[in-house]
């Protein structure tokens, strides 16, 4: 196990799309263990995506179960190792504040779906279906974005957006 180095914006590699995982082998599981250790060593530590450590494969980990106080309205699915995740349903919208280990010393407001359903393989290659909401759903969407070369900086909304602009996002971003 090892703590991997987090690459930080403006490193252009963070804007690259990652490739699907093909082989569910020991090498993958070793990497997942390192990625998880890196996530838990970071500030916040509720999510991480493989491209954040310079590996451009569709692997993310989310775990909100260790939070001192889980925000109201959030699901808690425990440790989620999500390989080749595909979000299939989005429902509702909520503005929330996000930061990123790859963007130190800055947080901003981002609108995300309140609930998502998605499929993903685990590190043994088994396919699972999941449903998350609230804070956990936000973490999943944030990490999944990394796999497409998207940062929360690409989704920032202005402070005045909260009350009046919610509908615009839905039209543009449900895809």
């Amino acid at each position: 196990m090892a703590i991997l180095e987090i690459i930080k914006y403006p490193d252009p590699r963070l804007k690259e799309a990652s490739q699907p995982v093909q082989a569910f082998d020991d090498a993958l599981r070793d990497f997942v263990a390192d990625l998880e250790e890196t996530m838990r060593a970071g500030p916040g530590g509720v999510g991480i995506a493989a491209p954040q450590v310079g590996r451009f494969e569709r692997i993310v980990i989310v775990d909100v179960s260790g939070m001192r106080k889980l925000p109201a309205g959030s699901s808690n699915s425990g440790r989620l190792v999500l390989i080749n995740p595909e979000i299939t349903e989005w429902e509702g919208m909520a503005m929330g504040r996000e930061g990123c280990m790859s963007v130190p010393d800055y947080t901003g407001n981002v609108i995300r779906a309140e609930k998502v359903r998605f499929t993903a393989h685990d590190e043994f290659g088994e396919l699972h279906e999941y449903a998350c909401e609230g804070y956990e759903a936000r973490a999943v969407q944030h990490e999944a974005d990394h796999l497409d070369g998207m940062l929360f900086l690409d989704r920032l909304v202005s402070r005045r957006t909260d009350l009046f602009r919610r509908k615009v996002y839905q039209q543009k971003d449900k895809r």
Binding site: P43, V46, G47, A72, G96, R97, E98, G99
Partner: peptide, 8 residues
Amino acid sequence: TPIETMVG
């Protein structure tokens, strides 16, 4: 509304 900053 409480603000719970998500750092991922």
